[in-house]
Simulated scan of single mutants.
Amino acid sequence: MPQLTTLETRPNRSVYDLVVAAFVGMLLISNIGATKLIAFGPDWSVGGAQLLPILTDGGAILFPLTYILGDVLAEVYGLRRANRTIITGFVLAAVMSLTFVIVDIAPPSPDWPNQDAWHTVLGVVPRFVVASLLGYLAGQLLNALVLVRIKERWGERHLWVRLITSTIVGELADTAVFSLIAWSTLGNFLGGDAVPWPAVINFFLVGWIYKVVVEAVMLPVTLRVIPWVKRREAA
């Protein structure tokens, strides 16, 4: 009898599912890490401008890598598939936040002493959830759109220009939206407290520059990964 070919036995060299899983996983991990604000250096202000400490959050460790994976998605698989992955990440991040809300308000066991610690670390603050989700959505969609539009204009040439330009635009939008909603008085309608504008500007500039620098440092790796993925998908 002829051997039946199924989806499990059929050869499949595509790494699309792995890229999507890594993208969404890093996004969710970064959102949890972002609940901790990190400061480097002593207090130092010049003319009312806060230069130190350098302010960022725990999400900065992994989140820039989502833009590298976003570049792979848009460059190799096109705008439609990249946007589908971005929306998937958005939905799952929203589901994660909703789950944390439900767990937080659920009555703790009398024998479990860590309710306050849970609420402090993972209790959802609406302004941070909205800021994170909207910043991510704006940044990733712009990142993919800019990369694809430049490719349509220049073809396969100048990949490094596409990667850097799309990251500059995407991270600018992401960090600006997040900073304005999460930290400034513009997000007060969602509750919580705002920080002084010099600190907001500090947080925005440090976050934006840091994320772009990470993309630039990782550029040699990205320039090798994208052709490898293209060859893999064509095999």
Rank of each mutant, 00 (worst) to 15 (best):
W112L: 10
W112N: 14
W112C: 12
N114C: 06
Q115G: 10
D116A: 15
D116L: 11
A117L: 15
A117V: 15
H119Q: 14
H119T: 15
H119N: 12
H119S: 14
V121I: 15
V121C: 02
L122F: 15
L122G: 07
L122P: 03
G123M: 06
V124R: 06
V124L: 12
V124D: 08
V125M: 13
P126R: 03
R127L: 08
F128G: 01
V129S: 15
V129G: 13
V130C: 01
V130A: 08
V130T: 03
V130P: 00
A131N: 01
L133P: 03
L133S: 00
L134N: 04
L134K: 05
Y136L: 08
L137F: 10
G139K: 00
G139Q: 02
Q140W: 06
Q140V: 05
Q140N: 09
L141Q: 07
L142K: 00
L142G: 02
N143R: 05
N143V: 03
N143P: 04
L145R: 15
L145H: 13
L145F: 14
V146N: 08
V146Y: 06
V146A: 04
L147D: 05
L147Q: 15
V148H: 11
V148D: 13
R149H: 06
R149C: 02
R149F: 03
I150P: 05
I150A: 07
K151G: 12
K151H: 10
K151E: 10
R153M: 08
R153Y: 09
W154D: 11
G155A: 07
G155K: 03
G155M: 02
E156T: 11
E156P: 08
R157M: 08
R157L: 09
R157C: 02
R157N: 13
H158G: 08
L159M: 12
W160M: 08
W160P: 01
W160L: 06
W160S: 12
V161D: 04
V161Y: 09
V161W: 07
R162I: 01
L163K: 00
L163M: 11
I164A: 10
I164P: 05
I164K: 09
I164Y: 09
T165L: 13
T165Q: 03
S166Y: 01
S166R: 05
T167F: 07
T167W: 06
I168R: 02
I168A: 14
I168W: 14
V169W: 06
V169R: 01
E171F: 11
E171K: 05
L172I: 05
L172R: 03
A173W: 00
A173F: 10
D174P: 00
D174N: 14
D174C: 09
T175L: 08
A176I: 12
A176N: 04
F178T: 09
F178H: 03
F178G: 00
S179V: 06
S179M: 05
S179H: 04
S179Y: 05
S179I: 07
L180D: 04
L180I: 15
L180A: 11
I181Q: 05
I181L: 12
I181E: 00
A182H: 02
A182M: 04
W183L: 15
S184C: 10
T185R: 15
L186K: 03
G187S: 09
N188K: 12
N188H: 09
N188S: 11
F189R: 12
